[in-house]
């Protein structure tokens, strides 16, 4: 197997906590130059997986590599992989700038790297304020600044949108997309699916510690194209219903008077209406979104085990 620079390969990762198999033979790859969403219900094993990948939690079995090397064997890991694991991981009595200076010192980087990282996340005005005075959004920004300190090619973020306001979420989205566009590998765990649909190029979906689906967002959505629905609104519902039933379509009436048609393409529904001389006020194809797919894929796999 050849090692792709910037590629994360997770292979048969397993973690057993007593009776509970938190992560179960999990394998997936994360490609550089793209934002990959790591999705799963609460308790699916997302955080445990990330912590195993980063050498903080010892896997029961399996491996995770960055460009072919396990995290704990990387020299100066923060120059290769930047991680944001929890918003509250700085000393409360230390200033944001000093927090980064400690990390820079340990990595042999100059203090100017800390200032640069603060500037990149817009924290310069609060640089000399103590961490306990930071808002949740500022803590997240400091976490990202810390992850970016060593200018790594791989970024891993655990629920970075938690506690951010809409402006902060937008800022995060733009930043992560820009970082991926520079060719970096970006892996973001989240349970906020609407946000992920806007942000991610690829998704890895897990539930109960097992892989459910992996691939580009479009493909994962398309793999469930059977759920394509067409929404129609007409002043002559009875005529349209009769015409559609001749085409073997399944029609359901919605409370607001619209009909949803399952089993026909949008154009087909339009043609049937035209041929039957039925007036249409609305005709929309509704693709399943990530949320529907996610709920469908993870249905029956309880988050609390």
């Amino acid at each position: 197997m050849t090692d792709v620079p910037g590629e994360i390969v997770v292979s048969h990762l397993t973690k057993q906590y007593g009776q509970l198999r938190a992560v179960d033979d999990l394998s997936f790859t994360v490609r550089p130059g793209r934002v990959t969403g790591f999705l799963g219900p609460n308790g699916a094993g997302k955080t445990t997986t990330l912590r195993m990948m980063l050498g903080l939690v010892r896997p029961t079995s399996g491996t995770a590599t960055f460009s072919g090397t396990p995290y704990v064997e990387l020299t100066e890991p923060i120059r290769h992989v930047g991680a944001v694991l929890e918003a509250s991981s700085a000393h409360k009595g230390r200033t944001g700038r000093n927090h980064l200076r400690v990390m820079a010192t340990a990595a042999g980087l100059p203090d100017s790297a800390a200032d640069l990282a603060l500037d990149r996340v817009g924290l310069t005005p609060a640089a000399n304020r103590k961490f306990k005075g930071y808002s949740l959004g500022m803590k997240q920004r400091l976490g990202i600044a810390a992850a970016m300190l060593g200018d790594p090619g791989v970024l891993i973020l655990d629920e970075p949108a938690n506690g951010l306001d809409p402006e902060g979420i937008r800022w995060m989205r733009d930043l992560l997309k820009a970082l991926a566009a520079q060719g970096r590998t970006v892996l973001v765990s989240s349970h906020l699916l609407a946000e992920m649909q806007l942000l991610a190029d690829d998704v890895v979906i897990i539930a109960a510690g097992q892989l459910i689906r992996q691939g580009p967002v479009g493909e994962v959505l398309a793999s469930l194209s059977g759920t394509l629905q067409v929404r129609v609104r007409t002043p002559q519902p009875a005529e349209l219903l009769a015409a559609l039933e001749k085409e073997q379509a399944e029609v359901a009436e919605l409370p607001d008077g619209a009909l949803t048609v399952t089993g026909l393409e949008v154009a087909h529904v339009g043609h049937v209406a035209f041929a039957a001389g039925v007036e249409l006020h609305e005709l929309t194809g509704e693709r399943a979104d990530l949320e529907q797919v996610f709920l469908q894929l993870t249905a029956g796999r309880a988050g609390i085990r």
Partner: peptide
């Protein structure tokens, strides 16, 4: 102990896995 108390152990051990 402050590394655990202040939850900075993660940062420290991410930076130095050994």
């Amino acid at each position: 102990t402050s590394e655990y108390f202040q939850q900075t152990a993660t940062t420290a051990f991410l930076q130095t896995p050994r």
